[in-house]
Design a protein around this nucleic acid. Sequence first.
DNA 1: GAGCTTTCAGACCC
DNA 2: CGGGTCTGAAAGCT
Length: 716
Amino acid sequence: MDGGSGHGFVPPSASFDKSRVLDIKPLRSLVPVFPNPPQAPPFVCSPPFGPFPPGFTPFYPFSVAQGPQSSPELNQHKTPTGATNHETPISASAHLFRTPPHFPGVVNGDAETSREYGVQFLNENSNMGAKQDGFFDDPKRAAPHLRASNSSRKKAKKSKDVDISLSVDNGKGSSKNFVMRFDSLQLDDGNREMVNYVLTTFDALRRRLSQIEEAKESPGGGIKRADLKAANILMSKGVRTNMRKRIGVTPGVEVGDIFFFRMEMCLAGLHAQSMAGIDYMFVKGGLEEEPVAVSIVSSGGYDDDADDADVLIYSGQGGNVNRKDKQVADQKLERGNLALDRSFHRANEVRVVRGVKDVVNPLSKVYVYDGLYTIQESWTEKGKSGCNMFKYKLVRIPGQPGAFAHWKSIQKWKEGFSSRIGLILPDLTSGAESIPVSLVNDVDDEKGPAHFTYFPTLRYSRSFNLKHPSFGCTCQNACLPGDLNCSCIRKNGGDFPYTSNGILVARRPLVHECGPTCPCIPNCKNRMSQTGLKVRLEVFKTNNRGWGLRSWDPIRAGTFICEYAGEVLDKVKVYQERDEGESNEYLFDTTRVYDNAFKWNHEPGLLDEEPSAEPNEYYDIPSPLIISAKYVGNVARFMNHSCSPNVFWQPVLYEHNNESFLHIAFFAIKHIPPLTELTYDYGMLQSENYEVQSNHTPNGKKKCLCGSSNCTGYYG
DNA sequence: GAGCTTTCAGACCC
DNA sequence: CGGGTCTGAAAGCT
C-alpha cells in the first residue's frame, strides 16, 4: 500500500473546481491538548521506552514525519508557531527517547510532528485515566459523542478528546498500560500513517479474536464475527480516522488500496456505511441542504454492469431486490438514490469501491478502491423482478493510477485470453512449485537474471549432528487449535499460530510448526510454511533495482508468501568468501539488526488481556542461520529491500530442539494489492561483523533505492 | 442459506 | 430548535 503511485492524485483541473470542494477545513487550533488535573503526576515518558534490544525502536504511533506519501492537499495541517509549544511536555519528552519515536513503517518522527498530531501519552496512574469511571468497560458508553450522527457532530467537535488505552512494550516482556489521547483532529481528517495505523491495529485485533474463538472447544456463543467485534472495539475507543465525510479524496487512502472487510473501509473513512452501498452527506444547495453521494461500493448484489474497468453501471438501492423475505417494489428517489441523483446534477466526484471475489477464499470478497468517478447518466429501467430501478452510469476520471483495471488484466492473463506483456518464462521454477512463477520484463531487453538453480527450501552442505533427539506431537489427524495435548501448540505458548484460513496471528520469537516426525497429516494447519506457495507470483524487472518480486493475487496481512531457500552456510565460510573478494548479494543472515523495527501484534489493552497475552515480537533464534541463495534458491532471492516494507520474515522451527529445522518464512505485513512489489527490510550487518566492502557508500553499505518517505538511505 | 450482526440516517419526542 | 432515543434500511459475513 505504501509507495504506490496512488498518492498525490488530484483530479484534472478541468473537472476540479475548487469552489465545489465542500469540506473546507474549519480553522482549528493545533496546540496540543494536555491533561490538566490539579494533581496530575508529572508526565514521564521514559519507563515504557527502553532499554530496547539492539536494533529496535519503540513503537510510537502518530509521531510521524509528513512525507511526500501523505495525502494531498486535504491533509495539510499547519504547525503552530507559538513559542510556548517548546515548553510542552510533548516536545520536552521527545528527546527522552533513545531513538526517535516511531510509527509502523515510518521512522524518525519528531517532536514537531508529535505536536502537530496533538498526541499524548498519559501515565496510567494519572487521574485523567478514563478507566476510573469504567469508561472503557462499556463500549456503548464509551465516547458517546462518537456515536452521534452527522447532525449532532458539532457536539463531538466541542467535546473532550478520546482516550485510548494502549500498552507499550518495553521489549523486556513487561508492558505498562498507557493512555494515548488524541483529539478530534485525527478522527476527522486522516493521512497515510493514520490510515495504516488504524488498519494494522484492526487486523491484529481481528486475528487475535479469531484465534481466541477458534481455540474454543465449542465455537459459537463467542465471537463469530471477529471483524465486527474488532471494529466495534476500535470505534468505541476512537481508533478510526476520516470521520468527517467529504467529497473526493480520502486522505491516506490511495487508489488501488484493498480491503477485506466492509468495516475496514468504515474505520479508514473511505465508506462509512457498514452494509449499505451508497454513502452520502448533506451540503448546502441553494436554500436547503441536499444529499450528495460521496462513495459507493459495487459488489454484485444488484444487477450492475462492471465489465468495463473505467465505466460502471450502478443500480440504486432499495426495492428489496436482494432480500428474499420481502416483497419487491419500485425503488424510490430517496436516500442514496436521491444523493446519486444530486451528485449527477452537481457533477461531484464519487469514490468507487469495486468488490471482487477473493481468489484465495472464494467465500469472501476483496474490496478495491478504484478512485474517483463522475456520474454521466442516470435513468430508470425495469429490473428482472419487473419493478423500476434506478441506474447510474459512472465514468472513471482519467489520469488516476490503475487499480481495478489491473485486476481485469490479471484475470485475462490467468484465463489465457491475453498473455502478459514482456513474458519471458511462464514458470521459472520449472514445476518445482505447485503454482507457476512467471518471469517478466517489460522495461528493457534483459532476458533474465543470472543463472541459478531453483530449489524450494533449504539445502545443507554438511550433515547436522542431532544434538537433541527430535520429537514432535502425537496428533493423529490434524492439530487443532485449543488442543493443549498437542506439544507443538504448547510450544507456541498454547496459541495456534495460524487462523483457520492460514493467516499468521502474531509475530513471535519463534513459530513452532509440526515437523517430519509429527504424525499429523501433511496439510495440518500448523505446517503453513512447509506447504509451498500460496499466491501467484511473478519475478519482474524493476526500473532501477534489478529484478523484483510481486503478486498477481491480492495478499491479506499475515499471509505466508514464501520461505528463504538456499544453501545454509557456515559463518566461517561467509567471511572467507568475503575476504577473497567474492561478493554475494543473496545472503540471508539472522544476525542482522533493524533500525526500522515495527510493531505488528495486537494491543492486549484493547482486549483487556494481560500484556503477557501478547507474544513479544523480538526474535529468539536457537543459533544463527546464514543462507546463500546465490547458486541455489527460490523466489525469495528476488525480494528487494525497502525501508517501508510490506513483508517481514519470521523464524520458524519445524521440530523441537533441532536447529537443523530452522527456517525463515515471509509473511505480509499489510494487505498488498496485486502487482505491488514485495519488499522486506534487509536490516544491517552488526558493525563488528563486517568489513568495508566498497568505497561508494559508508561502511560497505548499499545505497537504498526503495524511495519511501522514511528511507534511511542505505542498507546492508 | 438463514440468521445474526453493524452503522448511520431519519423520525419522533420532549 | 436542540438533543436524546428509537427504528428501519442496508451491495455483510459465517
